[in-house]
Nucleic acid binder design. Structure first.
Lengths: 144, 144
DNA sequence: ATTAAATCCGAGTATGTCGCTAGGTTTTGT
DNA sequence: ACAAAACCTAGCGACATACTCGGATTTAAT
Protein backbone atom coordinates (compact mmCIF):
# COMPACT_ATOMS: atom_id res chain seq x y z
CA UNK A 1 0.00 0.00 0.00
CA UNK A 2 2.15 2.80 -1.21
CA UNK A 3 2.11 5.70 -3.54
CA UNK A 4 4.56 5.57 -6.42
CA UNK A 5 7.35 8.05 -6.92
CA UNK A 6 5.14 9.70 -9.49
CA UNK A 7 3.21 11.37 -6.72
CA UNK A 8 6.32 12.37 -4.87
CA UNK A 9 7.98 13.71 -7.98
CA UNK A 10 4.78 15.44 -8.99
CA UNK A 11 4.52 17.18 -5.65
CA UNK A 12 8.20 18.08 -5.72
CA UNK A 13 7.78 19.53 -9.18
CA UNK A 14 4.77 21.64 -8.32
CA UNK A 15 6.50 22.68 -5.13
CA UNK A 16 9.53 23.76 -7.11
CA UNK A 17 7.37 25.73 -9.51
CA UNK A 18 5.60 27.29 -6.56
CA UNK A 19 8.93 28.51 -5.20
CA UNK A 20 9.39 30.35 -8.50
CA UNK A 21 5.79 31.41 -8.89
CA UNK A 22 5.50 34.56 -10.98
CA UNK A 23 9.07 34.37 -12.22
CA UNK A 24 8.33 33.22 -15.75
CA UNK A 25 8.87 29.77 -17.19
CA UNK A 26 11.15 27.36 -15.34
CA UNK A 27 12.94 24.71 -17.36
CA UNK A 28 12.52 21.04 -16.60
CA UNK A 29 16.26 20.69 -16.52
CA UNK A 30 16.59 23.04 -13.59
CA UNK A 31 13.73 21.41 -11.73
CA UNK A 32 15.24 17.99 -12.29
CA UNK A 33 18.57 19.20 -10.96
CA UNK A 34 17.16 20.88 -7.86
CA UNK A 35 14.82 18.01 -7.03
CA UNK A 36 17.23 15.25 -8.02
CA UNK A 37 14.89 13.63 -10.47
CA UNK A 38 15.88 12.08 -13.79
CA UNK A 39 15.18 14.73 -16.40
CA UNK A 40 14.03 12.19 -18.94
CA UNK A 41 11.62 10.65 -16.50
CA UNK A 42 10.35 13.98 -15.31
CA UNK A 43 9.60 14.84 -18.89
CA UNK A 44 7.04 12.09 -18.88
CA UNK A 45 5.58 13.03 -15.55
CA UNK A 46 5.03 16.64 -16.43
CA UNK A 47 2.77 15.60 -19.31
CA UNK A 48 -0.25 14.78 -17.15
CA UNK A 49 0.31 17.90 -15.06
CA UNK A 50 0.17 19.99 -18.20
CA UNK A 51 -2.81 18.17 -19.66
CA UNK A 52 -4.70 18.61 -16.43
CA UNK A 53 -4.21 22.35 -16.68
CA UNK A 54 -2.25 22.68 -13.47
CA UNK A 55 0.82 23.76 -15.34
CA UNK A 56 1.41 25.73 -18.53
CA UNK A 57 4.35 25.31 -20.88
CA UNK A 58 6.35 27.63 -23.10
CA UNK A 59 8.42 26.06 -25.83
CA UNK A 60 11.73 27.15 -27.28
CA UNK A 61 14.79 28.55 -25.52
CA UNK A 62 14.12 30.25 -22.22
CA UNK A 63 10.95 28.19 -22.20
CA UNK A 64 9.74 26.03 -19.39
CA UNK A 65 6.80 25.54 -17.11
CA UNK A 66 4.80 27.66 -14.74
CA UNK A 67 1.79 27.21 -12.51
CA UNK A 68 -1.60 28.30 -13.77
CA UNK A 69 -2.92 29.04 -10.28
CA UNK A 70 -1.49 30.27 -7.04
CA UNK A 71 0.00 27.67 -4.68
CA UNK A 72 -2.81 28.04 -2.17
CA UNK A 73 -5.27 26.87 -4.79
CA UNK A 74 -3.43 23.60 -5.39
CA UNK A 75 -3.81 20.72 -2.97
CA UNK A 76 -1.59 17.70 -2.62
CA UNK A 77 -4.62 15.51 -3.27
CA UNK A 78 -5.05 17.35 -6.50
CA UNK A 79 -1.59 16.40 -7.68
CA UNK A 80 -1.83 12.81 -6.52
CA UNK A 81 -5.10 12.34 -8.35
CA UNK A 82 -3.46 13.60 -11.52
CA UNK A 83 -0.39 11.43 -11.12
CA UNK A 84 -2.00 8.19 -10.04
CA UNK A 85 -5.69 8.50 -10.65
CA UNK A 86 -8.31 8.58 -7.92
CA UNK A 87 -7.67 6.99 -4.58
CA UNK A 88 -9.46 3.69 -4.83
CA UNK A 89 -8.48 1.29 -2.10
CA UNK A 90 -10.60 -1.36 -3.80
CA UNK A 91 -12.01 -1.80 -7.29
CA UNK A 92 -15.59 -2.04 -6.16
CA UNK A 93 -15.58 1.63 -5.23
CA UNK A 94 -15.11 2.66 -8.83
CA UNK A 95 -18.68 3.01 -10.01
CA UNK A 96 -20.17 6.38 -9.14
CA UNK A 97 -23.54 5.09 -8.16
CA UNK A 98 -22.09 2.04 -6.52
CA UNK A 99 -21.54 -0.43 -9.31
CA UNK A 100 -20.56 -3.73 -7.89
CA UNK A 101 -18.02 -5.42 -10.03
CA UNK A 102 -17.85 -9.13 -10.54
CA UNK A 103 -15.26 -9.88 -7.91
CA UNK A 104 -17.23 -8.08 -5.24
CA UNK A 105 -20.08 -10.44 -4.55
CA UNK A 106 -21.64 -12.53 -1.85
CA UNK A 107 -21.42 -12.02 1.82
CA UNK A 108 -18.42 -9.79 2.00
CA UNK A 109 -19.65 -7.13 -0.39
CA UNK A 110 -20.79 -4.56 2.07
CA UNK A 111 -18.18 -5.54 4.59
CA UNK A 112 -15.14 -4.54 2.60
CA UNK A 113 -16.93 -1.82 0.69
CA UNK A 114 -17.68 0.09 3.85
CA UNK A 115 -14.15 -0.27 5.10
CA UNK A 116 -12.53 0.96 1.94
CA UNK A 117 -15.06 3.69 1.55
CA UNK A 118 -14.20 5.03 5.01
CA UNK A 119 -10.53 4.69 4.23
CA UNK A 120 -10.88 6.64 1.02
CA UNK A 121 -12.78 9.42 2.73
CA UNK A 122 -10.15 9.76 5.38
CA UNK A 123 -7.33 9.80 2.86
CA UNK A 124 -9.03 12.34 0.65
CA UNK A 125 -9.67 14.55 3.63
CA UNK A 126 -6.02 14.60 4.62
CA UNK A 127 -4.67 15.12 1.13
CA UNK A 128 -7.17 17.77 0.12
CA UNK A 129 -6.49 19.74 3.26
CA UNK A 130 -2.81 20.30 2.46
CA UNK A 131 -2.03 22.93 -0.15
CA UNK A 132 1.26 23.71 -1.83
CA UNK A 133 1.19 27.04 -0.06
CA UNK A 134 1.18 25.11 3.22
CA UNK A 135 4.31 23.30 2.12
CA UNK A 136 6.02 26.57 1.25
CA UNK A 137 5.10 27.91 4.66
CA UNK A 138 6.36 24.81 6.45
CA UNK A 139 9.65 24.95 4.63
CA UNK A 140 10.44 28.60 4.91
CA UNK A 141 14.18 28.99 5.57
CA UNK A 142 13.66 31.04 8.74
CA UNK A 143 9.91 30.89 9.09
CA UNK A 144 9.87 30.22 12.83
CA UNK B 1 -3.21 3.94 -4.92
CA UNK B 2 -5.09 0.81 -4.16
CA UNK B 3 -4.95 -2.21 -1.97
CA UNK B 4 -4.59 -5.55 -3.72
CA UNK B 5 -7.16 -8.29 -3.52
CA UNK B 6 -4.93 -9.91 -0.95
CA UNK B 7 -6.29 -7.56 1.67
CA UNK B 8 -9.83 -8.07 0.59
CA UNK B 9 -9.45 -11.82 0.50
CA UNK B 10 -7.65 -11.76 3.79
CA UNK B 11 -10.44 -9.82 5.43
CA UNK B 12 -13.06 -12.04 3.82
CA UNK B 13 -11.25 -15.11 5.11
CA UNK B 14 -10.96 -13.87 8.65
CA UNK B 15 -14.53 -12.71 8.50
CA UNK B 16 -15.60 -16.15 7.38
CA UNK B 17 -13.66 -17.77 10.18
CA UNK B 18 -15.20 -15.32 12.61
CA UNK B 19 -18.65 -16.42 11.52
CA UNK B 20 -17.68 -19.91 12.55
CA UNK B 21 -15.72 -18.92 15.61
CA UNK B 22 -15.64 -21.71 18.19
CA UNK B 23 -16.96 -24.32 15.78
CA UNK B 24 -13.71 -26.17 15.22
CA UNK B 25 -11.51 -26.08 12.15
CA UNK B 26 -12.97 -24.76 8.91
CA UNK B 27 -11.54 -26.06 5.66
CA UNK B 28 -10.06 -23.73 3.09
CA UNK B 29 -12.23 -25.32 0.49
CA UNK B 30 -15.41 -24.26 2.19
CA UNK B 31 -14.10 -20.75 2.78
CA UNK B 32 -13.08 -20.47 -0.85
CA UNK B 33 -16.52 -21.57 -1.95
CA UNK B 34 -18.43 -19.25 0.34
CA UNK B 35 -16.20 -16.26 -0.42
CA UNK B 36 -15.77 -17.04 -4.11
CA UNK B 37 -12.01 -17.10 -4.00
CA UNK B 38 -9.78 -19.47 -5.92
CA UNK B 39 -8.89 -22.23 -3.49
CA UNK B 40 -5.36 -22.51 -4.82
CA UNK B 41 -4.78 -18.83 -4.44
CA UNK B 42 -6.33 -18.70 -1.01
CA UNK B 43 -3.97 -21.43 0.02
CA UNK B 44 -1.13 -19.00 -0.55
CA UNK B 45 -2.83 -16.16 1.20
CA UNK B 46 -3.58 -18.09 4.34
CA UNK B 47 0.14 -18.75 4.85
CA UNK B 48 0.96 -15.29 6.17
CA UNK B 49 -2.16 -15.28 8.32
CA UNK B 50 -1.04 -18.48 9.92
CA UNK B 51 2.56 -17.39 10.32
CA UNK B 52 1.45 -14.20 11.96
CA UNK B 53 -0.42 -16.22 14.56
CA UNK B 54 -3.83 -14.84 13.69
CA UNK B 55 -5.00 -18.23 12.55
CA UNK B 56 -4.22 -21.78 13.64
CA UNK B 57 -4.32 -24.83 11.39
CA UNK B 58 -5.19 -28.48 11.90
CA UNK B 59 -3.95 -30.91 9.32
CA UNK B 60 -5.50 -34.12 8.09
CA UNK B 61 -9.14 -34.90 7.31
CA UNK B 62 -11.69 -32.73 9.10
CA UNK B 63 -8.83 -30.30 9.49
CA UNK B 64 -8.87 -26.64 8.63
CA UNK B 65 -8.34 -23.24 10.15
CA UNK B 66 -9.63 -21.35 13.12
CA UNK B 67 -9.02 -17.99 14.71
CA UNK B 68 -6.64 -17.76 17.63
CA UNK B 69 -8.40 -14.77 19.16
CA UNK B 70 -11.93 -13.51 19.34
CA UNK B 71 -13.13 -11.32 16.46
CA UNK B 72 -13.22 -8.19 18.60
CA UNK B 73 -9.47 -8.52 19.14
CA UNK B 74 -8.70 -8.47 15.42
CA UNK B 75 -8.69 -5.23 13.50
CA UNK B 76 -8.87 -4.75 9.77
CA UNK B 77 -5.58 -2.88 9.93
CA UNK B 78 -4.10 -5.92 11.51
CA UNK B 79 -5.03 -8.10 8.57
CA UNK B 80 -3.96 -5.58 5.96
CA UNK B 81 -0.58 -5.21 7.57
CA UNK B 82 -0.13 -8.96 7.41
CA UNK B 83 -1.27 -9.23 3.82
CA UNK B 84 0.54 -6.27 2.31
CA UNK B 85 3.06 -5.13 4.82
CA UNK B 86 2.89 -1.82 6.66
CA UNK B 87 1.11 1.13 5.17
CA UNK B 88 3.94 3.15 3.72
CA UNK B 89 2.74 5.84 1.38
CA UNK B 90 6.39 6.57 0.62
CA UNK B 91 9.63 4.68 1.07
CA UNK B 92 11.25 7.32 3.19
CA UNK B 93 8.92 6.50 6.07
CA UNK B 94 10.36 3.01 6.40
CA UNK B 95 13.17 3.56 8.93
CA UNK B 96 11.92 3.46 12.49
CA UNK B 97 13.98 6.35 13.70
CA UNK B 98 13.50 8.26 10.49
CA UNK B 99 16.09 6.86 8.16
CA UNK B 100 16.13 8.90 5.05
CA UNK B 101 16.71 6.76 2.06
CA UNK B 102 18.75 7.84 -0.89
CA UNK B 103 15.92 8.97 -3.09
CA UNK B 104 14.54 11.21 -0.40
CA UNK B 105 16.99 14.06 -0.29
CA UNK B 106 17.29 17.77 -0.76
CA UNK B 107 14.65 20.36 -0.42
CA UNK B 108 11.60 18.21 -0.64
CA UNK B 109 12.52 15.77 2.11
CA UNK B 110 10.45 17.20 4.87
CA UNK B 111 7.75 18.34 2.53
CA UNK B 112 6.69 14.96 1.29
CA UNK B 113 7.68 13.17 4.46
CA UNK B 114 5.24 15.19 6.50
CA UNK B 115 2.46 14.67 4.05
CA UNK B 116 2.86 10.95 3.87
CA UNK B 117 3.34 10.68 7.56
CA UNK B 118 0.01 12.41 8.17
CA UNK B 119 -1.59 10.22 5.55
CA UNK B 120 -0.29 7.07 7.18
CA UNK B 121 -1.53 8.13 10.59
CA UNK B 122 -4.97 8.80 9.27
CA UNK B 123 -5.13 5.51 7.44
CA UNK B 124 -3.91 3.55 10.41
CA UNK B 125 -6.46 5.25 12.62
CA UNK B 126 -9.32 4.24 10.39
CA UNK B 127 -8.17 0.68 9.84
CA UNK B 128 -7.24 -0.02 13.42
CA UNK B 129 -10.58 1.25 14.64
CA UNK B 130 -12.56 -1.38 12.73
CA UNK B 131 -12.60 -4.87 14.18
CA UNK B 132 -13.90 -8.06 12.68
CA UNK B 133 -16.54 -8.09 15.39
CA UNK B 134 -17.73 -4.75 13.99
CA UNK B 135 -18.11 -6.35 10.59
CA UNK B 136 -20.11 -9.22 12.04
CA UNK B 137 -22.35 -6.74 13.78
CA UNK B 138 -22.83 -4.65 10.63
CA UNK B 139 -23.74 -7.70 8.62
CA UNK B 140 -26.09 -9.42 11.00
CA UNK B 141 -28.96 -10.93 9.00
CA UNK B 142 -31.63 -9.09 11.00
CA UNK B 143 -29.55 -6.88 13.20
CA UNK B 144 -31.72 -3.78 12.77
C1' DA C 1 18.79 31.96 -41.71
C1' DT C 2 21.26 29.24 -38.47
C1' DT C 3 21.86 27.58 -34.16
C1' DA C 4 20.61 25.81 -30.08
C1' DA C 5 17.55 25.54 -26.15
C1' DA C 6 13.87 23.81 -24.78
C1' DT C 7 9.30 21.30 -25.00
C1' DC C 8 7.11 17.29 -26.94
C1' DC C 9 6.41 12.38 -28.36
C1' DG C 10 6.77 7.45 -28.57
C1' DA C 11 9.31 3.26 -28.27
C1' DG C 12 11.89 0.20 -25.56
C1' DT C 13 13.64 -2.19 -21.21
C1' DA C 14 14.50 -4.19 -16.70
C1' DT C 15 12.34 -5.24 -12.61
C1' DG C 16 8.78 -6.33 -9.75
C1' DT C 17 3.98 -7.40 -8.21
C1' DC C 18 -0.62 -9.47 -8.91
C1' DG C 19 -3.61 -13.04 -9.35
C1' DC C 20 -3.60 -16.96 -10.53
C1' DT C 21 -2.72 -22.38 -11.97
C1' DA C 22 -0.49 -26.64 -11.22
C1' DG C 23 1.71 -30.27 -9.16
C1' DG C 24 3.58 -32.35 -5.53
C1' DT C 25 4.55 -33.66 -0.28
C1' DT C 26 3.09 -34.35 4.37
C1' DT C 27 -0.02 -35.14 8.05
C1' DT C 28 -3.75 -37.66 10.11
C1' DG C 29 -8.68 -39.11 11.01
C1' DT C 30 -11.43 -43.05 9.46
C1' DA D 1 -4.67 -48.33 3.45
C1' DC D 2 -7.29 -44.54 1.98
C1' DA D 3 -8.43 -40.11 1.44
C1' DA D 4 -8.96 -35.46 3.12
C1' DA D 5 -6.96 -31.90 4.25
C1' DA D 6 -2.92 -28.67 5.09
C1' DC D 7 1.47 -27.38 3.16
C1' DC D 8 5.11 -26.12 -0.31
C1' DT D 9 7.23 -24.42 -4.58
C1' DA D 10 7.50 -23.27 -9.22
C1' DG D 11 5.83 -21.00 -13.01
C1' DC D 12 3.05 -17.76 -15.94
C1' DG D 13 0.66 -13.92 -18.26
C1' DA D 14 -0.58 -9.38 -17.57
C1' DC D 15 0.38 -5.10 -15.84
C1' DA D 16 2.81 -1.14 -13.49
C1' DT D 17 7.04 1.27 -12.21
C1' DA D 18 10.89 3.80 -13.12
C1' DC D 19 13.48 4.55 -16.04
C1' DT D 20 16.56 5.41 -20.92
C1' DC D 21 16.82 6.80 -25.58
C1' DG D 22 16.16 8.85 -30.01
C1' DG D 23 14.18 11.94 -32.36
C1' DA D 24 10.67 15.72 -33.90
C1' DT D 25 8.97 20.31 -33.11
C1' DT D 26 8.90 25.01 -31.57
C1' DT D 27 11.12 29.36 -31.03
C1' DA D 28 14.34 32.86 -28.85
C1' DA D 29 18.77 34.57 -29.61
C1' DT D 30 22.65 35.34 -32.72
Amino acid sequence: MKLSTKSRYGIATIYDLAMHYGQGPISLKSIAQRQLISENYLEQLIGPLRKSGLVRSVRGPQGGYSLTKSPDKISVGNIIEIMEGPILPADCLSGDNGDINSSCTRINICVTRNIFSKLKDSMDAVLDSITIADLLEENKPQGD
